[in-house]
Nucleic acid binder design. Structure first.
Lengths: 224, 224
DNA sequence: TCTATAAATGACCGCCCGTCATCTACCACC
DNA sequence: GGTGGTAGATGACGGGCGGTCATTTATAGA
């Protein structure tokens, strides 16, 4: 790790320190989980006082929002890199899910994004975040469209819908206790049946099928 | 409103009081929203001391979990009642969404179910809740299967998947600020595009299509 | 070397969840 | 109708959190 001055005075140094804090937040989140994620302990892990955190982030939720955006970007990069020039729907669906699961904390953050995180952030920050997310997904859609032989518009729609489905499916994984020893077998089956993996892949393919069908059928706009 | 004794001694009286508290919780949630939902104010609204709430519920999250289950039951009843003997996929998808939106607080509760609510509840309560939800959905699947001309298994799968999709789509609506006056037009469009209504209906139909197709095709089990 | 600036600090505030010693409404029994 | 014991109701309290701000002090530039 590169040395850091005790005071970050230049803009570059400030960005570096902000990145350090985000890095610590990622580790902290991985270690203690959401419920125990506190600003005091984050400060301790990042090696700064609690008050310092509030020089770089508005609120606790602002930290998590920034972390989510970073993770989303990382996911986009992974998707770009690992999607071959010609891809199938099934493989794409599987990759969509696999890469999202591979990004530590991405799905947990996503599960809490709208319901929790976005509720304690200033309006300008929220607006900037929304724009950033939209740009990221739009970019990805433009790049992946030819590889899946879809029009860019349909590709973007697909990413949006698959995102929603993934979010819904991932909620189940956000629950507690999956690994607790004393859970009755029938309950474990209930939880497992909701497991995001197969549920997502099966139905992502169905949706892509539907999108392809609609794309071939409708020549212009879509019905009311 | 029927009169209540100051002390609930019989089991029936206790259930009545519990129901009263849940009722107050529903109103409280509607009035102040999630962030401001506190046990102190709930007690005030229900006309009992804060400590009394903890005689009927383990934690704040236990209140919300119980409220969710009640709302889910109400949704199921509405679905049973309003689904005609022979239904189309499109109409069913629309009703699925409409009835869920009609149940006040159902979608917001659902959005926070796994990520927040279930994390502060004892294991037995969680297990009981999971069983209850499973039974509710299973029941509904059995009743709706003939009306949609689907095998019961496929119907249950459909309900599960549509539930996940609805949850994902509803997350977007759980965000803040949709009605704030000073949101740039482009950001408003981003939020609107994610709007759950059309996104859900379109893709629910696609999924139902896929399920029907798979049901007709595969005679026995499904592939690996 | 010295000084002005602004980054860093952590004690402090208000709020909230959940507990528990205490109080008292109610029922059963005489 | 009076009375004692049970158990439901209470709310002051503890612990911990997010967020603030007067104070401290590292650092760049003169």
């Amino acid at each position: 790790m590169t040395a850091r001055p005790q005071r970050a005075r230049s803009t570059a140094q400030k960005q570096l320190r902000r990145a350090d804090i985000l890095d610590a937040a990622d580790r902290h989140l991985t270690e203690v989980g959401f419920e125990a994620f506190s600003m005091a302990s984050l400060g301790r892990l990042a090696g700064v006082a609690k008050g310092t955190l509030y020089l770089y982030f508005e609120t606790r939720e602002d930290v998590l929002l920034a972390l989510f955006i970073a993770k989303l970007d990382a996911w986009r990069s992974a998707m770009e890199e690992h999607t071959p020039a010609r891809d199938t729907d099934a493989a794409f669906a599987q990759r969509f899910h696999a890469e999202a699961s591979a990004q530590a904390n991405l799905l947990p953050l996503m599960a809490r994004l709208d319901s929790v995180i976005e509720h304690n952030v200033t309006l300008p920050t929220l607006i900037a975040a929304k724009r950033r997310m939209d740009a990221t997904l739009r970019d990805l859609a433009g790049i992946l469209a030819p590889r899946l032989a879809l029009p860019p518009g349909a590709m973007l729609e697909a990413i949006h819908v698959l995102g929603a489905l993934l979010l819904g499916a991932a909620q189940m994984d956000a629950g507690p206790c999956l690994d607790s020893p004393d859970i009755p077998r029938d309950v474990r089956q209930i939880v497992t049946r909701f497991s995001s993996d197969e549920l997502f892949t099966r139905n992502a393919v169905r949706i892509l099928d539907g999108i392809r069908h609609d794309t071939h059928t409708e020549t212009g706009d879509h019905a009311t």
